[in-house]
Design a binder for these strands. Sequence first.
DNA 1: CCACAAATGGGGACATCACCTGATTTACTT
DNA 2: AAGTAAATCAGGTGATGTCCCCATTTGTGG
Lengths: 219, 219
Amino acid sequence: MDKEKKRIVIADDHTILREGLKALLYLSTELEVVGEAEDGREAVRIALELKPDLLLMDLSMPRMNGIEAIKEIKKQHPEIKIIVLTVYKTEEYVLASLQAGADGYILKEANHAEFLLAIKNVLMGKHYLSPEISGKVIEGYLKGQQDQAPLTVWDTLTSREREILKLVGEGYKNREIADDLCISLKTVGKHRENLMKKLDLHTASALTSYAIEKGLVTK
Amino acid sequence: MDKEKKRIVIADDHTILREGLKALLYLSTELEVVGEAEDGREAVRIALELKPDLLLMDLSMPRMNGIEAIKEIKKQHPEIKIIVLTVYKTEEYVLASLQAGADGYILKEANHAEFLLAIKNVLMGKHYLSPEISGKVIEGYLKGQQDQAPLTVWDTLTSREREILKLVGEGYKNREIADDLCISLKTVGKHRENLMKKLDLHTASALTSYAIEKGLVTK
DNA sequence: CCACAAATGGGGACATCACCTGATTTACTT
DNA sequence: AAGTAAATCAGGTGATGTCCCCATTTGTGG
C-alpha cells in the first residue's frame, strides 16, 4: 500500500498495556508506534506535536479523560484518526466518544485480529465499532436524534468546569491544578466557585464527593 | 540457564492485554506463553491442567476473582509461581494477594523492564513487589508476621477516627462534625490531623477520596 | 453587529484548614 | 501501681479555600 509506515500514538495510563500494544504493532510492517501518553493532557500535547496518523485512546485516564482529549485534538487536527480502546461497553461512553469525534471504538476484550482490523478500517477513512456494542449504539443513536432535554445540573457544567472538578476529585489542591493547567490560581478558584454555586455545595470535600459519585475520578 | 523455556499462563479478562503481553514475552528467548484464561475459574482450570512455571494473574475478573483463584491454585500446586498484575495499589489488595499465596505483585503501570525483572525474580524463587507499593507493604507485612497487630494502615485507625473520617467523607465541615458529635472544633481538627498523618494525606479532598474508596460513605 | 456564554484573571474579606506546640482524663494492660 | 493508648481540648501561625466584587477576551448564534 503505502511506502511509509503509518505513525501511531498510544494513550493509556497502564504502561504494561502500552508496551504490549507496541510489541503487538511491532509485528506489523505497516504500522509504527511513534509516541505514548499516560494521561489525557499528555495525549493532547503529544498528538498535536507529532501529528500521528492514528491515536489509540483509553477513556479513563488521570488529569484529563479521553473524551475531553478527543474533542481537543479533533478541534485542532480533525485529520488525526482516533480509536477509543476501553473496557466500557455502555452506550453513554460510546455515544460520547463518537460525538467527541472518535473514528473507532474497540473493547479491551477484543483480540489481535479485530484490533488490526479496526486500525486498518479507520486508517482507510472508515469507522469501526466493536461488534459487541455496535448493535445497541445504532438504536440509541437514532433515538437520540429527536428528543433532547435532559438538563440535569450536571449538564449545565462547562467542559472546563468538569475538568477542574475531576482534578478536585482526585485530591489536588488549587495551586497544583493551576500549575497543571497553566492558568492562574484565581481562575481555578473561580471555576471552583462556579461549580459550588451550580451544584449547591460548599466545601472542597463535598465537591470531591460529587466528582467521585459521578465517576469522574479514575484512580 | 535452562535449556527449556519457562512455561507461562496469562489470566486477564482483557484479550488485547493478553495478546500484548504475549507479544512482549515472545521477544524473550527464555519464556513461552502456553495458555490463557479470561476469568478466575478458567485460570484455575488451566493452571491445574497445564501446570505452568508461572501464572500472571489479574485481580478483577468475572466469575471468580484473582484472590480466590490464587488460593485455589496454591492449595493444590504450591510450586506454581503466581504474579499478580493489576491496577490496584492499595495495601488491602497487596496483602490479600500475598496472604492468598502470590509470589509477586506488579502494577499495570509498570514498564517492560520491571515486568521482566519481576518474572525473573519470581522464577528464581524470590518475591517481587512493585516499588510503588513495596514500601508501605513490607513494613506492614513483616510486622504482621510476628505480632498479630496492625496489618494495614487502616487498622491503625481508632474507631473515633473512623467515625470522623466517615463524616469528612460525606462532605461535612469541621464545625458541623463538632456539633454533630458534641465535641470541640479543636478535637475534630486534631482527629483530622492524626488521620492525615497516619494516611499520609494532606488535603480535605484527599481524605474524602480515601473515605469513599474505603466504602465508608453510605449515601 | 450585538448579545451571550465561556474562560480567563484580579482584589479583598473572611472562614476554614493544615500542622505544630502543648495538656488532661479515662480506660485498659502489664 | 505504672505505663500506654485513646479521646478530649487549647493556642497559634500560615496556607488554603470560600465567596463576593470586578474586568477582558474569545467564540457562537441570532
